[in-house]
């Protein structure tokens, strides 16, 4: 167990995982506050289609994922304005269509029978130094955007219309937030995989709710819990040779269960 800590691949895994945890905590808080879990999942699924397009066009997979995730989010905003269908129905349509498109496009390139487990569930143990740099660069960018939007986002999370009446530029903030989630999705893809990104967003934030009395503290606690989940998951993966992405999510789930022991005070 301790030997493995000296291995560069394991150190890279820890670094990349902690970078993701740092943003997954605070971003996840907004997902929880605004009841957007399904939204995050839709963007994650659309990321797979982005990867497929990236493979076909021979461009960066991260770029492909960001572009398609943003396009999906914008499409959702437009469709939601029409009010023809409920938002969760729209998300159901977009999410699964994007997932299907993703699996088909990726299959076209890698062969229909190939195993795409890595894309779906992540492979944190194979991250390269470049990957680590992309993760941390993206993480810092996401955190900077989040800090900039913070006050307005909180106001919108509490009561959107009141915030609007009080002069918050809701559309602009919303757009910023969508870009931020798309970016977050793209950098997390390789680490925890598309199917588990929502888990890393939602579970640490939900666990932090009981431990914090202000939005800021909840964000910090969520980041710490996500960090612990990464470390715990990697330890499990290294010792029991379990698949890494799901191990991280399982660790997050266990931490959430632990927080249930504490009575919610506010």
């Amino acid at each position: 167990m301790l030997d493995i800590l000296a291995e560069p691949f394991f150190q890279r895994a820890i670094l990349a995982g902690l970078g993701i945890a740092l943003v997954a905590g605070p971003v996840g808080c907004f997902i929880v506050w605004r009841r957007m879990a399904y939204f995050g999942e839709t963007l994650a699924n659309s990321g797979l289609f982005g990867v497929g397009l990236g493979l076909i066009l021979g461009v960066s997979l991260t770029l492909g994922a960001v572009v398609v995730a943003v396009a999906t989010a914008l499409l959702l905003l437009v469709l939601r304005k029409q009010r023809a269908l409920a938002t969760d129905t729209l998300l159901g349509i977009l999410s699964h269509t994007a997932l299907a498109l993703g699996l088909i496009t990726v299959g076209l390139v890698t062969g229909a029978a190939s195993n795409n487990m890595e894309l779906l569930f992540g492979d944190i143990l194979t991250v390269t130094t470049t990957d680590v740099m992309i993760v941390w660069g993206g993480a810092i960018l996401v955190l900077a955007m989040l800090t900039f939007l913070w006050r307005d986002l909180i106001a919108i999370s509490v009561h959107e219309e009141l915030a609007r009446a009080e002069g918050v530029q809701v559309e602009r903030v919303e757009l910023g937030f969508i870009l931020l989630i798309a970016l977050m999705t793209a950098i997390s893809m390789k680490i925890v995989g598309l199917l588990l990104i929502t888990a890393l967003l939602v579970i640490p934030a939900a666990a932090a709710r009981r431990l914090a009395a202000t939005p800021e503290r909840m964000a910090v606690v969520a980041a710490m819990i996500a960090g612990l989940a990464v470390l715990g998951g990697l330890a499990l993966s290294a010792t029991a040779n379990t698949i890494s992405g799901p191990s991280v999510v399982l660790a997050a789930g266990l931490l959430f269960v632990l927080t249930l022991a504490k009575r919610q005070t506010n």
Binding site: V32, V158, L162, R209, A212, A213, T214, P215, M218
Partner: peptide, 11 residues
Amino acid sequence: RFPLTPNVPLD
């Protein structure tokens, strides 16, 4: 309507 959002910790 002001739906209470117990999700957001606010005093």
